[in-house]
Design a protein around this nucleic acid. Structure first.
Lengths: 207, 207
DNA sequence: GTCTATACGACGATAGAC
DNA sequence: GTCTATCGTCGTATAGAC
């Protein structure tokens, strides 16, 4: 019971928490909330079933935390793009790149998970509203970059929030479809951003 | 046991089948497969729980049939657009309109349901492949219209299949997002088709 | 902090009466 | 063809030993 030990315990607890969250993110997004058993999560994290409830109140509790994590990460990503030392176009290119980078499927899974959450009946309405609010934060961040780009002359006119929504819709729609087909489209940042740029390259799709 | 009676029985059976399919479509897409109970489906169709198994082998059996129904409907819709007596642009406008028409949420739910099916572990791999194949049929139909539009000079250059995928991704992404937000974007056919048209209206988004 | 064993409820599926 | 009653299983959550 020395301070030293308490600290160690806390470290272990934090580490286990993170492991369970990671496992849950992976499994929820692959199989959906209802189809994922608590024992799936614990076995993936190499813990016993019973121990789960020392770390989370319930399966639903963990679910909501995972959704929040995803959105938090995305908001941070947009913030990182905003703070980059480049033009607005460069920022959008970077953001689009990293969204599609790594294991492509991971991004897809996360996106689907958020959508599922919005339509799930395992989550109460206030929490859903919170999710929508956080998503809108991300949209606003992107809208801000687009606004910059408009002033630089790179991007087409129009309400930045609306353009941001269009951009996200296209990017995510492509992500979802791409992850499923055997021969993915050669998804290029240029093509996704094409809809935003002012017309100088109408033949771009042929590249 | 007269022929007359047999016919009546068949009619009743068909009608119940359809009712159950409709209920299932609604519930699966709103709540997901796992979260939808067989009793939910039957009570929505105003039948008893036990009777369900006179019409379908299992819950999973019905699930696959519902997914097939959705895709079949969509393929028919694309075919109907193709056969319309208008320019390719007119066909795409019509298709986009009807996709977003009616109860908007209905379209969203269907789309999400197909996506969920592709990632579900309640469906075996051959069936998933079949789903992808059917989806590609629809994409090919749209690609055909786009090809027409390119020759008419309405649409930008590029691989039609790829453009069709982009179009669907954007349309569905918007649909999903729009259904959730309280104040939906005034989703206009023009805006969705903007990415396909040759550049003559870069300020369209401001309308 | 970790585990095994178990209580308890929910749901898919079946049986059998009408 | 339709219903109610019931079985069997699975999964969440808890209890209690180490």
């Amino acid at each position: 019971m020395t301070p030293k030990n308490e600290e160690q315990f806390k470290d272990i607890r934090d580490q286990r928490q993170q492991e369970l969250r990671r496992s849950a993110l992976k499994l929820f997004s692959q199989k959906g909330y209802a189809a994922t058993k608590v024992s799936d999560i614990t076995s993936n994290a190499k813990l016993s079933h019973g121990l789960f409830y020392h770390y989370f109140e319930s399966k639903e509790d963990l679910y909501v935390k995972v959704i929040r994590d995803i959105l938090q990460d995305f908001i941070k990503l947009v913030a990182a793009a905003t703070e980059r030392n480049s033009t607005a176009l460069g920022k959008m290119e970077w953001l689009t790149d990293v969204t599609h980078a790594g294991s492509i499927r991971e991004g897809v899974y996360r996106h689907i998970l958020v959508l599922q959450a919005l339509y799930s009946d395992h989550i109460n309405e206030p929490t859903k509203s919170e999710i929508v609010t956080r998503y809108k934060e991300a949209v606003s961040g992107i809208a801000h970059i687009i606004h910059e780009g408009q002033q630089e002359g790179y991007f087409i006119d129009g309400d930045p929030e609306e353009l941001a929504t269009y951009h996200l819709s296209l990017a995510h729609g492509l992500l979802i479809w791409n992850a499923r087909t055997d021969r993915p489209l050669a998804l290029s940042t240029d093509k996704v951003l094409r809809q935003l740029k002012v017309n100088t390259d109408k033949g771009l799709m042929n590249e």
